[in-house]
Nucleic acid binder design. Structure first.
Lengths: 346, 346
DNA sequence: TTGTACGCGTTATCAA
DNA sequence: TTGATAACGCGTACAA
């Protein structure tokens, strides 16, 4: 690894000149010198030492991507193609913009905080944080933060304005449209399945569900809730129970394609036909929604683009641009495939 | 961000003392001082500046994870739950060992080389590289390298000994067992499906297929090849063609669960029953193999563990330990589910 | 037991 | 147009 100093020595000039050429500050350097230096740089395949550069400039060119997960989850969170595809979108945009992505997955906020402080990353992408967590990280950190799928409370937003931004989906509308579609098909007994009903995106998806029900004059009751215990040791048993419970319903809306497919399989196992006896709707429209059979009717969102946009926004902020909006919401889109149909006559 | 210098100033002592306490070189410091410093560090929540530390020590605590992908792939490579799960295994082990993972996905080796040189990562994890690429990177780089699922040529191995290591699977055995199982069921017309037949893992999986055929006295012909064009614009059309071609076969062995499921779907679409008319076997046993219906008979490997082990090995090497073996091979295991059965009478 | 001083590779300031 | 030189924050050899 050759250094600027050494290059300067070999060319018999100062480090400043070499550095200037490297950075294209060519107004200050004679044409001849430029060419000599550039040729030499080429020859020795010079690459800057990032640590030294970062130290000098107090930058890092690193984007920290923090994903809060759940302890003992049934599968690593990255196994969800939705998450993975989003990460791909982040990675690509970061790389093309001269940044690098550092992934950090943890269920421990204290650990995450420490990580963020240590690497002085230029900016942070926070995925699926709950309100307070994102806030605490920002409080301590005071560098550009872009959240993805994180609902920022009104108070927080008022206090911090555009300081942190969220890239999200109109989750409420997503399930609202889905449930409305089911109701239009004639369904009345419509369940809602998730592993959580009062936080983050799930809370808002649940809201959309309730709203659609209420507008159709269907009275909601807690027995409509299909709560998935999504830890490794509970999930199979729980799915079996939920499938049995599903016998009393004609449709179920879920918060994830994976949940939907798992439920469908559990139902088929006990003789419930999908969509004959039961319609099931997913959320995300990831690879699995397309590949599974019956293919999933689901709520589409563009994961790759989400990661892309979040990263582009973050990099803009790092470069000092004020983001246009504190919150960017995409429109969900219902994709109708095979897992839904009109309810069977009873 | 408080610095050691500032801490020393405020405590009225030298930076050396502070630094010594931080690094636990307490033999040289009085008990009283230690406590004063430790208490103060706690109070101000000192975190070292990584760039400065790295510059001083010529380290980075970063593990570079490089994945070579294909341009215009039908889906981001991370969407494959096998890859994603492996990445999770890497991330977890790295984090728990005090390292961080930097992901770099690209189809351009020159770009990858540049990246590796710039960040002086402490070690590299190379996934799915072809022989020469891993070699070129190591040549230039001369730091610990662990490959995953990369077949290192005999010459290279002889020249570099344990300098780079591969964590892999006995791929040949995997398909060998699968094909043998099909033959035992009575299949004779067995196709082999991949997007590549002469590089890396696929080459060896293909070998296993050929060996099983040959041992059973079945003569191989090129028409047994099901070549998937896996770019975005070709894949659907190609799958349809392969499904039609599948009519002449009773079984097909594939190189990936995703390929298998896509093929099954394409077959079902044109009225081929799986496993009634056609048995299909996947590879990897990822989430999709379990979720799809008919669930996949497939060759199991533990992706999370693979990532974990590769990372642990790399970190050992970084710490100066010679790895026990240049190549660690796991045993594949055939998992029989619903996508295979005896061939139909014709 | 503690402190001084220098090197790591780069960038930036200011003088020549 | 070019060149010294100081800073960035940390670790450490060596001196006190």
């Amino acid at each position: 690894m050759i250094t600027i100093k050494e290059i300067a020595r070999q060319l018999g000039m100062s480090t400043t000149t070499v550095s200037n050429v490297i950075h294209g500050k060519t107004g200050e350097v004679s044409q001849e010198t430029i060419e000599r230096v550039e040729k030499f740089l080429e020859e020795v395949e010079y690459v800057p030492n990032i640590n030294a550069r970062n130290l000098a400039q107090n930058k890092s060119k690193i984007i920290g991507v923090v994903i809060k997960t759940m302890e003992n989850r049934y599968e690593p969170i990255l196994s969800d193609p939705f998450v993975a595809t989003m990460i791909s979108g982040i990675e690509k945009m970061a790389r093309e913009s001269g940044y690098f992505m550092m992934l950090y997955i943890s269920d421990d906020i204290a650990e995450i905080l420490k990580y963020v402080a240590t690497w002085n990353v230029d900016g942070l992408l926070l995925f699926w944080m709950m309100d307070d967590d994102a806030f605490r990280i920002y409080e301590k950190y005071r560098k550009p933060v872009v959240c993805i799928d994180t609902y920022i409370g009104e108070e927080t937003k008022a206090e911090y304005g555009n300081a942190f931004v969220n890239i999200g989906l109109d989750d409420e509308k997503g399930t609202y449209e889905a449930v409305k579609y089911l109701i239009d098909l004639g369904h009345k007994e419509i369940g809602f399945m998730s592993d959580n009903f009062n936080k983050g995106v799930d809370k808002h998806r649940f809201r959309g569900y309730r709203r659609a029900l209420s507008e159709a004059g269907i009275e909601y009751s807690d027995r409509y809730l299909f709560e998935l215990r999504s830890t490794k040791d509970e999930i199979d048993d729980c799915l079996h129970k939920l499938a049995n419970k599903a016998k009393d319903f004609t449709a179920i809306v879920t918060c994830s394609d994976i949940f939907a497919v798992m439920l469908i399989n559990a139902c088929i196992d006990i003789g419930i036909d999908v969509p004959g006896d039961l319609s099931v709707i997913g959320f995300d429209d990831n690879l699995i929604a397309k590949l599974s059979r019956p293919s999933l009717t689901t709520i589409h969102q563009d994961a790759f683009m989400k990661g892309n946009l979040a990263t582009a926004t973050l990099i803009d902020m790092i470069h000092g641009k004020e983001p246009a909006k504190a919150v960017t919401i995409h429109e969900p889109e219902l994709v109708i495939r095979e897992s839904t149909g009109a309810p069977a006559k009873r």
